[in-house]
Simulated assay, not measured.
Amino acid sequence: MKKYPILYFTMVLAGLLMLSTACEDEDLNPYIEPLSGVHAYGQFAEDSPTNFIKGESSEDLNINLQWISIDGELEVDKIDVFVLFNENYVDIDRNPLVAAHGGEEGKFYMSIEGSEIPANRENTTISISQEDVFELYKEATFDYDDDGNAESVFSNEFKPSRTDNTPFISGDNFSIRWILYTTDGLVFDSWSPSVCTELPGANCEVSWILECGQIIKEPAQDYTISMADSYGDGWNGAAINVVIDDVTTSYTLDAGSSGTTVVTVPEGTTSLAFEFVSGDYDSEVTYSITTEKGNTIASGGPAPPAGKITLDLCTENE
């Protein structure tokens, strides 16, 4: 059983008002009154797709966002929403890199204010499509070969598969983040890592990818599941279920910091799915699933969401 320092949860709440991690004196009174502050929690609406689908540029993703007042005193009267667009690419030396076209902040997408602001812990819905993201980033440029000359992101020799109908391709990933403004003039634009990844009912962004459907064209092959635990004591009840023609087999990391398992899916398989099963300390859990072709079709963590795992099949199904 894990034991955290006595100030751990106090530090989580105090971190809400800090732009960087601070040190706490272990000798301080552990019964510190929680500082006031606000954070937010975003998640996909129950009936929403959770990724962009290649070729379906006008379909919306719907994200429910709620703001939360820690002490019940502060109230939010404005939320600014920003969209980030990152692109995986390979440089001239064949190194895999990431182009963060919106930097760390992203591009401004919308403000929610006035009568559109929900009450504390109530949802407001943000809708976004590929067309919306393209409109934000259509003028973006990037120096892919590091020669001092930036190329258009959506029209260049490095990514000829980008077209008017499919501006986004495999390897693109997206997220939204937010800034909260309170009625007394405070601005909350970043939170401690504990709030973003470990505090229940809180996060700092919602992320997704572009996918090419969820049916693997050639399911019969070997799949390598790589599992890691940052604490080094195994997955504590978490697992990955592999569902082959409605027959479920569970795989987990029983102990240690890392491990792999190879799952052989037999010829004649008609349906294949992967599911993540939540354990006691999901914030320590990361995983990836790789096919025989060497394509990583899924990865998750820390704190991966429970349920069916969304697969990235754009390269696998080519």
Rank of each mutant, 00 (worst) to 15 (best):
T182Q: 11
R177V: 07
M110Y: 11
E26Y: 03
V263G: 02
I70V: 14
L16H: 04
F44W: 03
D93N: 14
N86I: 02
I297S: 04
E292C: 06
G294L: 09
V133Y: 03
E116M: 09
I79P: 00
S194N: 15
P200I: 05
D145P: 06
A100S: 13
E205S: 15
V265K: 00
A228H: 10
K107P: 01
S58I: 09
I128M: 04
S69I: 03
N236S: 12
S250L: 06
L19E: 15
V285F: 03
Y137N: 01
F188I: 00
P193Q: 15
E73V: 14
D77K: 00
I112N: 08
F9E: 10
F82Y: 10
Y287E: 02
S192P: 00
D189G: 03
L74A: 14
R162A: 14
P96Y: 04
K138S: 13
E26D: 12
E131W: 05
V262Q: 08
A228L: 02
P302S: 14
D172M: 00
N317C: 06
T270H: 09
S161Y: 12
T10G: 04
A202T: 12
Q214D: 10
A228G: 02
M1S: 14
S278A: 13
K217D: 14
S288Y: 01
L253W: 01
A22W: 03
I112Q: 04
A40M: 09
F274S: 02
Y287G: 04
V262I: 15
G256L: 06
E205L: 14
D282F: 01
E46Q: 15
T50G: 13
K3V: 08
T197G: 10
L61S: 03
T296D: 08
D71M: 11
M110Q: 15
G106S: 01
S278Y: 00
V83I: 14
W67D: 01
R121A: 15
D229E: 14
C204R: 07
D93Y: 13
D146N: 11
